[in-house]
Computed example of a mutant assay.
Amino acid sequence: MRRVLLGLVGAVTAAAAACAAAAPAPEAVAEVPAVRPVVLGSVPHDTSAFSEGLELSPDDPTLVYESTGLAGRSQLREIDAGTGAVRRAVPLPGDDFGEGLTVVGPTIWQLTWQDGVALEWDRATLTLRRQVPIRGEGWGLCSEGNRLVRSDGTDRLRFHDPATFAETGSVAVTLDGRPVTRINELECVGGAVWANVWQTDRLVRIDPATGVVTAVVDASGLLTAAQRPGTDVLNGIAHLTGNEFLLTGKFWPASFRVQLP
């Protein structure tokens, strides 16, 4: 009986070894290295602004649009790109909590966090045209031209029609094969989507076709120790020109003009 059992054990061991030898090795995942931005300069930023979205005007390089948050304090703002001064500001309806925004021709689309609507503004007059229902939370928003890209705090980017804001699809975001959650403020640039990762000093560059992160930026250390008290997290990406961007954060005293890879 002992010889039979030993024979069975040997057979099972050999079969397992054969299966292991036949099984393909897991595919290696190349890690995406983190790089650091090159700081070119800075401009003042309103320390009362709980920044949620930032975007350069497509036809006026001296003008930046900013969305600020907090219930009862949220605004849509026009900011002077050179001085950081507020040119115009309008409040959001009621206690709506402002989030990301983007410009589409004569329209500004602005998200709300948990209020269940996207706001459509007339860009020339900053008057509210309508409120469109959305599913889930609103975090970041940017425009690829033929579609809008929205983040909702999960690991997904959601796509919307730029005229109706109807949702048209989504993609899961991964870094080195793992989900990336808490994707926040977005900026669409040259077929890629740049994103803040909430509660970190990281930016990621995402291929919206696959959801794969193709670059990681370590933006820690933009604020000095003297500037840091009273501030909140990094949150605000506006593409300026080429590989230059404007970065800021919630309650930050400055916005930084940087080069990203």
Rank of each mutant, 00 (worst) to 15 (best):
L101W: 00
A49V: 12
P179R: 14
L70G: 01
F251T: 12
A17E: 09
H45D: 12
S57R: 05
R3W: 13
D232V: 09
T13K: 01
F159Q: 04
A14V: 13
E187Y: 06
W109V: 08
T154D: 10
P58R: 07
V12K: 01
G236E: 04
A124F: 07
L128K: 06
G94A: 13
A226I: 14
G236W: 00
A71G: 05
L247A: 04
D207T: 12
V193N: 04
L101C: 03
L157Y: 05
S220Y: 12
V39G: 09
A85V: 14
K250I: 08
G72V: 08
P162T: 15
V9M: 15
I108T: 01
A124H: 12
T200L: 12
R135I: 12
A124D: 15
T83K: 12
P253S: 13
T224R: 14
Q75S: 02
A89I: 06
N243G: 07
Q110D: 07
T241C: 03
Q75C: 00
L223Q: 15
A238T: 04
W139K: 03
A22I: 07
L5S: 11
R3L: 15
L126I: 08
G53Q: 02
D176L: 03
H160A: 10
A195R: 01
V39R: 14
A215F: 02
V258G: 01
F245Q: 01
R202F: 15
P133D: 15
V39F: 12
T112I: 04
G249V: 10
R88E: 13
A21H: 12
V39H: 09
F97R: 00
W109K: 08
T248A: 14
G177S: 13
L203R: 03
A81D: 11
E185G: 04
R202M: 13
G100N: 07
T112S: 05
T154Y: 07
A163Y: 11
V64Q: 05
D80I: 08
T154L: 08
S151F: 02
L101K: 02
V32E: 00
G236Q: 06
V213K: 02
N196T: 11
V104P: 00
G10K: 05
C19S: 13
A172D: 14
G249W: 05
A172N: 12
R202I: 06
G136K: 05
V29T: 15
D95C: 02
D152M: 03
A20D: 09
T102Y: 06
L111D: 07
S255T: 12
W194R: 04
R150Q: 15
Q199F: 13
I237D: 03
P229Y: 15
M1K: 13
T62G: 09
G249C: 10
N146I: 01
C142Q: 10
G82S: 07
F245L: 03
S151K: 02
L240M: 08
G236N: 03
G100V: 03
Q110W: 02
A209C: 07
G236V: 05
G41P: 10
F251K: 15
V213D: 07
C142V: 11
L63M: 08
F159D: 02
R178F: 08
T125R: 15
A163K: 13
A11G: 13
A21S: 11
L234E: 04
